[in-house]
Design a protein around this nucleic acid. Structure first.
Lengths: 340, 340
DNA sequence: GACTACTGTGGGAGCGCTCCCATCCCTGCT
DNA sequence: AGCAGGGATGGGAGCGCTCCCACAGTAGTC
């Protein structure tokens, strides 16, 4: 159908049409300054007339860069996170890459087998760099990728002293802000439901909680700390445990909105009113928070912005050799609703 | 670092190591049957020893296929849909593509400009086919892509008689099932909040609602139909209007869970109890439905399965020339909760 | 006026594959 | 014994670019 039956035009054909050499067209296409203005316009016209679009495969083969980057999301964790998380992240990454005219390759990794397959892709030189979302504490993948010589940027980190470049949100600040807010509302027996403590993000939020207590002059109490797993059910269980151990608690900082939904259920079961008896603060500012009864006060992370920042950092790493690993920690923000 | 400094091994090197010709290695790699068992194992060993991985760009250039497909999601609509929708869809697509060893290129289209850029990509022959999510009624993109000679499969359709291959869920069935369920619970003044009627999905659900009424021998009443826009606020407004016009209604089929959340709010404002005074059915079976008070009965769409099916269809279209456009309509399922 | 120093340009040499044709070497048959 | 018919194999010819070297033309320098 239509005139493209004979195949798409090539550099050579554009060159012929513009009456110049192949190299010159290439220079124009790639914006080299070493071309006279006159030649440039002639080539530009030929390009327009022929509807020329450079063949990506040929470019990649000759130039050894693909103009594509991979975003890797471990499937297991994709289910844990409050749902909009990854979509927001993708949105940010996508926006930034689109501006730079790069392609986004999305890889959901479900199994060890797929993970190996992914490493094969990297080896096949399909991408110029890798973005890694939600990496576990002991995940060797980031280091493996670096060994392949590919730039990587992670979302979040595996530990306090992360050697690989990353973009994280200020999880410690999130915990502190939550506690400070609760203290400001006159609460003093403040408990917390944490995430799984093998994840740095969970430890950081817990650390922020403790720092917040210390700043308010409140004594830490291990009875007031209960570990969840970022699921609703986990939040429910942790809350029950807390109520059991410390019936006198008057506030809870829950390390995610989804867990907060579970916790809220446990409080209802126990006949505690929110916020009259127990005040609640979550993390994520997810749609869930808005829909809860009462709507949940929550600490917002700038997810989309994290995505953008990651992409930007990666693109930088791709062009300029990274002297030392970059890292960015973006601020969080407390969104007040009626649960406090 | 490590031994790959000298560049990755090539076909040629594998051939030399195995003591065979280049063509033979290529045949082994691509699983051609015209290779003796002995040679095959010899080559396989050389591949393993060298850690050979075929260069994708070279393959694409020589073989003119990329082993990648694009999934296009219009950003504007990504915000409308109940959040897990696209993630589930992506999950399904990704799973199926991974099995077939294909890459997923994700493209969020935000503006007309980005859309054009996307068409350039297609022209640059970066993908073997395109998956299109949530296409509007008058969207010319699907036809444009077909003109480029690329296989396309859409999620949903633009009209009843869609010429482009698609995978849809049974939206008419969804409406009928919802109404039948409500009728079964003794309701007879059944209203509906629809989606924006320029979208086929909204019209189909409305059609199902009407068919359901007819099947139950209930007279249609246009006063009982109110258009929303798939947002929570739109659902709230539509519900208010409905209550205003027909205070005697005793049930509502709301064409999405998010709108149902808004509708539920409007009912609360009006002092109507759910389900005692007014029964509610939504669509999507999203997390929102589970969290509502009372939890919302909702018609589930097999989103992930749609994603898988789309991918499968596209892969088929890529290999065998499509005689006539394929289409698949997957069944929906009513999930009972306490809102009826 | 000869020399150097640029800028602009053309085009050869690959990049690492796939495609395909020519070749070789078995079978099996007459 | 001689020949056809295959299966297995080697390797040339590209695929459409980028890189880079060579060269022409022009300008600047003493």
């Amino acid at each position: 159908m239509s005139g493209r039956q004979s195949g798409r035009p090539t550099l050579e054909q554009v060159a012929a049409r513009a009456g110049v050499g192949r190299g010159t067209v290439s220079r124009v296409i790639n914006g080299s300054p070493r071309v006279s203005e006159q030649t440039r316009t002639a080539v530009a016209r030929a390009v327009a007339e022929l509807g020329y679009v450079p063949n990506q495969a040929a470019r990649a083969l000759a130039g050894s860069r693909t103009d594509a980057i991979a975003l890797v999301i471990p499937e297991a964790e994709a289910r844990l996170f409050t749902e909009p998380y990854f979509l927001d992240l993708i949105r940010g990454v996508s926006a930034e890459l689109a501006e730079a005219d790069k392609q986004l390759l999305l890889t959901l990794v479900r199994s060890e087998q797929e993970r190996q397959r992914f490493e094969q892709y990297l080896a096949a030189q399909r991408v110029d760099g890798v973005l890694l979302a939600s990496v576990h504490g002991d995940d060797p993948l980031p280091d493996r990728i670096r060994e392949l010589g590919l730039p990587v940027v992670m979302n979040g980190r595996r530990s306090e002293a992360e050697p690989v470049p990353y973009v994280d949100s200020d999880n410690i600040g999130a915990g502190r802000a939550a506690v400070a807010h609760l203290v400001g509302r006159g609460r003093s027996r403040i408990a917390t439901v944490t995430g799984p403590l093998d994840m740095y993000v969970a430890r950081a939020r817990l650390g922020g909680y403790r720092a917040g207590l210390a700043e308010a002059g409140l004594a830490p109490d291990e009875e007031l700390v209960s570990a969840g797993d970022f699921t609703e059910e986990g939040g429910r269980r942790a809350m029950r445990l807390l109520l059991d151990r410390s019936p006198d608690l008057d506030a809870v900082f829950v390390a995610s909105d989804v867990m907060a939904a579970g916790a809220r259920g446990a409080l209802r079961e126990a006949g505690r009113r929110v916020p009259e008896d127990v005040a609640l603060v979550g993390v994520d500012d997810s749609p869930v928070a808005r829909l809860m009864d009462p709507p949940l006060t929550s600490v917002r992370q700038p997810i989309e912005e994290m995505g953008r920042t990651m992409a930007r950092m990666l693109l930088e790493e791709i062009v300029e050799a990274p002297e030392e690993p970059r890292r960015r920690v973006l601020p969080t923000e407390l969104i007040e609703r009626e649960s406090c």
